[in-house]
């Protein structure tokens, strides 16, 4: 079942075409990796899916519903969770409270002025934290967590609205190699068990080829290849972009 369908989205910043006519789709339970050299347009692409940037043209549909140009807030309501490249959590709250706030928003219980927040959705929050292996750290301040733990907390927050689609922007950036694999394996399990469609960008090729069902390769805003691991590995244009043939080099 197709969860997310992207049809010909484009975005220019001034004269630069950051993303040009990109189309793809993600199915339930599928892990789709979006890769490409720096400046290929991955983050712009991502921001158009979650509503931070409105595309110049093209359509984004979530479970058949047009979400093009909606605000991040609306898109979350429709069932899209997101983790950020640079983690964004609530530093003045504990780990559990971070998840509780997300749950309060999801269950539309934000406009409550009397009953203390800790009394809301505690068990549900602990359940989510257990899923990402953060149960023991539930009472710690989010502001003092190690980076890998912050990433896992973000994942728990992103899962709070029981998303159909999970967007993970560079989920393993800044993590130790062993942690990277563990985190992505966790995402892999969640995708399979809950039937969540996962779209992620990533620089670490071990992670990409290790967990992704399918891979999209962007270069200079254009989609140049799509396929499973072996197909991408043997694709001539991808090799040219990543290894550099001199003629079409746009990468590192």
């Amino acid at each position: 079942m197709t969860i997310l369908n992207v049809a010909g989205i484009s975005k220019s910043f001034g004269g630069v075409r950051a993303v040009a006519d990109v189309s793809f789709s993600v199915a339930a339970g599928e892990m789709l990796a979006l890769i490409g050299p720096n400046g290929a347009g991955k983050s712009t692409c991502f921001n158009m899916l979650n509503g931070q940037t409105a595309p110049d043209s093209g359509r984004v549909t979530l479970q058949g519903r047009d979400i093009t140009g909606l605000s991040p807030r609306r898109i979350w309501r429709l069932g899209v969770g997101r983790t950020f490249q640079i983690t964004a959590t609530f530093a003045s709250m504990t780990v559990r409270e971070n998840v509780q706030v997300a749950l309060l928003a999801h269950h539309r219980r934000v406009w409550r002025f009397l009953r203390p927040a800790f009394a809301w959705f505690g068990a549900e929050a602990d359940g989510l934290l257990a899923q990402v292996g953060m149960a023991e750290q539930a009472s710690r301040a989010a502001g003092v967590l190690a980076y890998g733990d912050l990433k896992r907390l973000e994942l728990a927050i992103a899962l709070a609205n029981a998303p159909a689609l999970l967007l993970m922007d560079e989920p393993t950036a800044g993590m130790a190699p062993s942690e990277r694999v563990a985190l992505m394996r966790l995402a892999r399990d969640l995708a399979s068990q809950r039937g969540i469609a996962v779209l992620f960008t990533e620089h670490d090729m071990d992670v990409v080829f290790g967990v992704a069902d399918r891979i999209l390769v962007l270069n200079r805003g254009e989609l140049i290849a799509e396929g499973d691991g072996p197909a991408i590995r043997s694709d001539a244009r991808v090799r040219a972009v990543y290894l550099g043939s001199g003629a079409t080099s746009g990468g590192h």
Binding site: W76, R77, S92, V101, V110, W111, P116
Partner: peptide, 28 residues
């Protein structure tokens, strides 16, 4: 004080702590 420890106060504090994340979890 009570309102600040209730969901309203937490949601408010969430928008202060991280505007990006608050928006991404549907807080206005």
């Amino acid at each position: 004080r009570r309102a600040l420890y209730a969901p309203f106060g937490y949601a408010l504090r969430a928008t202060r702590d991280s505007a990006l994340r608050a928006e991404a979890i549907g807080l206005n």
